[in-house]
Simulated scan of single mutants.
Amino acid sequence: MARTKLLAARLRAAGDRPYLAAALYALHVVESVAVPTMGVDRFWRCYVNPAFVDATPVPELAGVWIHEVSHLLRDHHGRAGRLPATVRDDHVRVNLAQDCEINDDLVADGIALPAGHVSPRTFGLADGGLFEEYLPRVPASARPHRCGSGAYGGREPWDLPAGGVGVGATEAQTLRRQAAEAMRAHQRGRGTLPAGWQRWSSQILEPTVDWRQILAGTVRSAVAWASGAVDYTYRRPSRRSTAQRGVVLPGLRRPMPGVAVVVDTSGSMSGADLAAAMAEIAGVLRQVGIGGNRVAVLACDAAVATTQRIARVEDLTLTGGGGTDMRAGITAAAALPLAPDVIIVLTDGDTPWPAEPPPARLIAALVGHRAAPPPSWATVVQVGP
């Protein structure tokens, strides 16, 4: 491989965009004839095909260096892992959507890229979006593109085993913050940044709390409160009964908390948003140790259409499409034979709410930002990407 040419291209990339220098030099080069061009894994190892290096001019190689490190800085691997299962493994379309998120900035910044590179305009889309926004509109017939498992997840045949040389998760976060701080300093020096990098650096330096963490913490709090409740029962007599002849003392029962999820299936709810948010909520419930028949899911528009107890979110069938009244779902959830301790209402918020709080703790998981807030007694979590 023309290694001198490859490293000269990296030097040029770091010189042209010095705020990316630390990230670029953190990449470990691995020569491989299996990778079609260049690609990265999540350990910041950059796999390079020698024939691609020989055939590509240095200015374009510098652009590919910036493109590949952008996948890692923007945590495309981690974000791809949070996609709904129905689209997560469609690596071709995920990779193309990710390339759209990156390349609109690179083209606007005057960075040279090889012929045939993908941008939002390739698919008639507007610049400035995130890959999660582009993904539904990338056609299934689009040509394959492979930037490596560090972009779209999974594992490629050319990937080295985990461990050994590479960058760990903690160091990767440090590199992201260094790049964001360098971008901020670049702007203070009257330098310009593409819109995508401005948005990204602001999110790194001024992060918002992930709604998944809020939901998990809220559910944990409610479940801990329910688990801490105890009651007397004769189904398990107290061990002290052995010291009391002729007397049976009741034992203490610690109930297993149950959760009901009321899903808004009215016409105002987007199917893609609904599937993604429901998958996330199922993941949160698994994380806090609740599953199986402890979770009831009620599909509700203006009335409850179905009630299911599911072990996997893939088994869920949601029906509806009419008006919206989550009061019906909340009332039905509270009246279940296995009464829930926590009720999660997944809705866009365009619904009337009960005048009084239900007997269970209620968490309103709101998709979108267009509706009035729920009552003050509800715990509100804003669901978003």
Rank of each mutant, 00 (worst) to 15 (best):
L205M: 06
L175E: 00
H117G: 02
A305M: 09
V297N: 08
F123G: 05
A224V: 08
G271F: 03
H91L: 15
I66Q: 03
A224N: 11
V263C: 04
Y232F: 15
V219G: 02
V138N: 05
R253A: 09
S119K: 07
D127R: 09
P36E: 15
A34K: 09
G384F: 11
R74S: 04
I102Q: 00
P120A: 09
Y19H: 06
G267P: 01
A2R: 05
P354R: 01
P50H: 09
A333E: 04
G258L: 07
L7M: 12
M269W: 04
P337D: 15
M278C: 11
G196I: 10
D341G: 10
Y232H: 08
A334M: 06
P139A: 08
L130I: 10
I102W: 08
P385D: 14
V223P: 00
G154W: 15
A151G: 11
S227L: 10
R143S: 14
G322L: 06
R245S: 09
V367I: 15
Q178T: 10
A277L: 07
V167Q: 01
G384I: 06
R235A: 13
P359A: 13
A142P: 02
I111Q: 07
Q287L: 15
P354A: 04
D104L: 07
T174G: 03
G154H: 11
T242I: 11
V167S: 01
C46W: 13
A23Y: 00
Q198G: 09
P50I: 04
T174C: 09
L175Y: 01
A305C: 11
R93H: 09
A355V: 12
Q187P: 00
Y232N: 01
G164D: 07
K5M: 10
K5R: 12
A311H: 12
N49P: 01
A371M: 10
M326P: 00
Q187M: 11
Q187G: 00
W65N: 00
S376C: 13
M269C: 07
C147E: 08
I344S: 03
D127M: 05
W211L: 05
G329E: 04
R240P: 06
Q173P: 01
A180F: 01
A275F: 11
H28Y: 14
V342Q: 02
L130S: 10
V248G: 02
L175G: 00
M1V: 06
D104W: 15
R309D: 00
P255E: 05
Y232D: 06
S221M: 14
R45D: 13
P357F: 15
G128L: 13
